[in-house]
């Protein structure tokens, strides 16, 4: 199956410092790749390059087979993006935020479809008419996901989606992410939460100093083995 997200020798330098160094990866439809790494490992830079928010120094990010830098707008049209803190317009209701972002993406809003997506995400129905300023973090993440699903994103990039969520909300979101992937969406998630990564990912990439230092199958390792592996790589950095 062709990769929806693909990095080929993706490199980004800020001056002398290499934020990303020859990254190669591919995420196919229905697959969830978690990028695991400490702050500054290059996870967010990777997401920015896929979104076309910044230009690669070398190599290329591809979305659905097209080079992002050549036509960032076309890449973004196929992508969904969920930030660590989904920033919504606090004075607008959830529904209005959804409408706005959908229309921004050029999608005509069908209320029935919107309700179906929200139901699938187990978004509390009565909250959709409330101002988004009153939402909990979990609700914001779900609404962010709903925004991505509304535009029929083929691939969704999630930046630390689980950090700061209480355990119940995190469990809920993990389930929602699994269902989303199962529906055929490619997910690329940056995180430093090893245990949640194991729960949600079909593959886990460990990043350090802008390089992908390991790619593991979470099913083949126990949580503690994964932690050990991660710490080993981190320790190498410290050494």
């Amino acid at each position: 199956m062709a990769a929806l997200l693909e990095a080929r020798g993706l490199t980004k330098a800020y001056g002398d410092r290499l934020a990303l160094d020859g990254l190669d990866l591919a995420v196919a439809a229905g697959e969830t790749l978690c990028l695991l790494g400490a702050n500054g490992a290059g996870k967010t830079t990777t997401l920015n390059l896929f979104l076309g928010f910044t230009q690669p120094t070398a190599g290329a990010a591809l979305v659905d087979g097209r080079v992002v830098a050549d036509d960032p707008a076309a890449a973004r049209a196929r992508l969904g993006y969920v930030a660590e803190v989904v920033s919504l317009y606090p004075s607008l209701s959830g529904a209005e935020n959804l409408d706005f972002f959908a229309r921004l993406a050029g999608v005509a809003v069908d209320p029935a479809r919107r309700d179906a997506i929200l139901a699938r995400l187990r978004f509390p129905a009565e909250a959709i008419a409330r101002p988004a300023g009153t939402y909990s973090k979990g609700m914001r993440q779900k609404l962010g996901l709903a925004i991505a699903l509304m535009k029929d994103a083929r691939a969704i990039l999630l930046d630390e989606p689980l950090s700061g969520l209480d355990p119940a909300a995190a469990n809920d979101l993990v389930a929602v992410l699994r269902e989303t992937a199962a529906a055929g969406v490619a997910l690329l998630i940056s995180t430093h939460d090893i245990f949640r990564a194991k729960e949600v990912a079909s593959r886990i990439g460990i990043m350090r100093h802008g390089r992908l230092v390991a790619m593991v199958d979470p099913a083949s390792l126990s949580a503690s083995e994964l932690e050990q592996l991660y710490l080993t790589h981190m320790a190498e950095r410290a050494a």
């Binding site: 707008a73 890449a75 993006y81 920033s87 919504l88 972002f101 050029g106 925004i147 990039l157």
Partner: peptide, 21 residues
């Protein structure tokens, strides 16, 4: 204001074109 609130990332990621917005 969107930059201050962080919404600009999502706005740009939606891909509708900032000019249109």
């Amino acid at each position: 204001a969107d930059r201050d609130s962080g919404a600009l990332r999502l706005v740009l990621a939606q891909g509708g074109g900032i000019g249109r917005l």
